[in-house]
């Protein structure tokens, strides 16, 4: 009996609570909350991610988008031809013009790939803030020396 009481006191001391059952209950509660959170996150992700990818795919890879892009490239080609450009050069220039769309994929890759753009921006902001703080400190210390 004494042993049980001693053990109970040690558990309560470690947990910092009055009853030993509270620790287990709290753990159960936190696990339940975590599971609920995971469930909610998965629910949102399974709805939002496909919609986002579908949007990107639909904007670039659809018959209508292809027609529009073709119209733009064809108008460019026609203008060059009407301007008296030789056939070969006009085709090559149109190829370069169309190649701009391919670079969009590179931009996307750079932005999503490793978050380089975000990191660079963050570094720039940090540097700018540090610079301004240093300037302010220099101004303040300059004022104090002038006053004294």
């Amino acid at each position: 009996m004494y042993k049980i009481e001693f053990l109970s006191r040690t558990v309560n001391k470690k947990a910092g609570t009055k009853g030993g059952g509270n620790v287990i209950e709290e753990r159960k509660k936190s696990r339940k909350e975590e599971a609920e959170e995971v469930k909610e996150i998965l629910g949102v992700v399974s709805q939002e991610v496909p919609a986002l990818i579908k949007g990107i795919v639909g904007a670039v890879f659809s018959e209508e988008a292809g027609k529009d892009m073709g119209r733009a490239a064809a108008a460019f080609y026609r203008e060059l031809k009407e301007g008296g450009m030789p056939e070969e050069t006009a085709v090559r220039m149109t190829e370069n013009y169309v190649g701009v769309f391919t670079s969009l994929g590179n931009v996307l890759k750079g932005a999503v790939g490793k978050g380089k753009i975000g990191e660079l921006a963050k570094e720039d902001i940090e540097e700018e803030v540090a610079k301004r703080v240093r300037l302010k400190i220099a101004e303040k210390t300059g004022e104090r020396t002038e006053e004294s």
């Binding site: 991610v49 496909p50 990818i53 579908k54 795919v57 670039v60 890879f61 659809s62 018959e63 209508e64 988008a65 292809g66 027609k67 892009m69 073709g70 119209r71 490239a73 064809a74 108008a75 080609y77 026609r78 031809k81 085709v91 149109t94």
Partner: peptide, 28 residues
């Protein structure tokens, strides 16, 4: 995601054909 990936090939083919048609219309 699997469904999107499977239908992507078909969508690319259609967009490509539409693009080519417009260029051929202008004499290319």
């Amino acid at each position: 995601l699997l469904l999107i990936w499977l239908s992507l090939g078909w969508k690319v083919r259609k967009a490509r054909k539409a693009f080519e048609r417009e260029l051929i219309k202008q004499g290319m």
